[in-house]
């Protein structure tokens, strides 16, 4: 990782814009990852980027549809993409950063915190006058070694163990209707007791498609009691939108953030677990 990138990354993941990406597109210490579908990637992508799809990052487990892939699978995947433990990874997508955020969380969970995320959808790269290429770069295979950081994830047992812990805040990033139980994907509607709701799209400036400024984001989260000193657990339906909320908090420098990967696809299905509406 270059000294500049290292400095940028000192307090957590960084957000990069089209100008920064253009200036670093040939940097051999940076690996740009396109997290859109392989179909879209093949149609055109940012120069020197490689493709990692969401389906590479999640697997169905224990009846849950989209759980984090195994350590071995992630090690193999990242190594095949030329990502080593020192590589600075920049992720982008075309859905407001939701897929790129899933990669960001996966990397942080597996102990790799040298990562940045493109500011909004990659359409903004094209809007800035930049181009896509169809050329797929050849990279040298690495030997990525994952070191799972259990402080970046929350299991159902962890959530239950902290359900009344005042130092822990549960951040539900689903819609207001999902939060209130008016819309339910699965057996039950509602939310985890004590959770607060900040829809993941509140992080997006809808006039530009970019992320809101750090000051704006901080104000939104703090107004709901999501503060740096707390341990924050993000969740949604199956962990995708939750990764976006996770990313935004990490970009703001929040040190203690976990993603409840199974999210409502687990909590909502277990009748014995308390819910609020």
């Amino acid at each position: 990782m270059s000294k500049e990138s290292e400095k940028m990354n000192a307090n957590g993941p960084v957000v990069v814009d089209a100008r920064w990406l253009k200036d670093h597109i040939e940097d051999p210490e940076i690996r740009i990852i396109d997290t859109r579908s392989s179909i879209d990637y093949r149609k055109g992508h940012v120069k020197n980027s490689l493709n990692i799809q969401i389906s590479d990052l999640v697997k169905a487990k224990r009846g849950l549809p989209a759980m984090c892939s195994s350590k071995e699978d992630i090690e193999s995947l990242l190594s095949s993409k030329g990502i080593g433990n020192q590589t600075f990874v920049i992720a982008y997508d075309n859905f407001g950063g939701i897929f790129a955020s899933r990669l960001l969380w996966t990397l942080e969970y597996y102990g790799h915190e040298r990562i940045g995320i493109f500011n909004g959808s990659i359409k903004r790269w094209l809007d800035a006058g930049e181009e896509f290429t169809r050329k797929i770069p050849k990279v040298q295979k690495t030997d990525f070694c994952a070191n799972p950081n259990e402080r970046r994830t929350a299991s159902i047992d962890w959530v239950l163990g902290h359900i009344d812990d005042p130092k822990v805040k549960f951040l539900d990033v689903r819609t207001k209707d999902e939060f209130a139980g008016k819309t339910a994907y699965g057996a039950r509607g509602g939310h985890i007791p004590r959770a607060v709701n900040v829809h993941w799209l509140e992080a997006i400036d809808t006039t530009t498609g970019a992320f809101k400024s750090n000051d704006e984001l901080k104000a939104i989260y703090e107004s709901k009691g999501i503060t740096r000193g707390k341990e924050i657990v993000t969740y949604c339906w199956m962990g995708l939108r939750a990764s976006h909320g996770y990313s935004m908090l990490r970009v703001l420098g929040y040190p203690f953030v976990r993603n409840y990967d199974a999210s409502w696809s687990e909590w909502g299905e277990i009748e014995s677990l308390a819910i609020e509406r």
């Binding site: 579908s37 179909i39 498609g209």
Partner: peptide
């Protein structure tokens, strides 16, 4: 900008 809405993930 939604270039791949045909895919299952999208």
């Amino acid at each position: 900008g939604f270039t791949d809405l045909e895919t299952p993930v999208m």
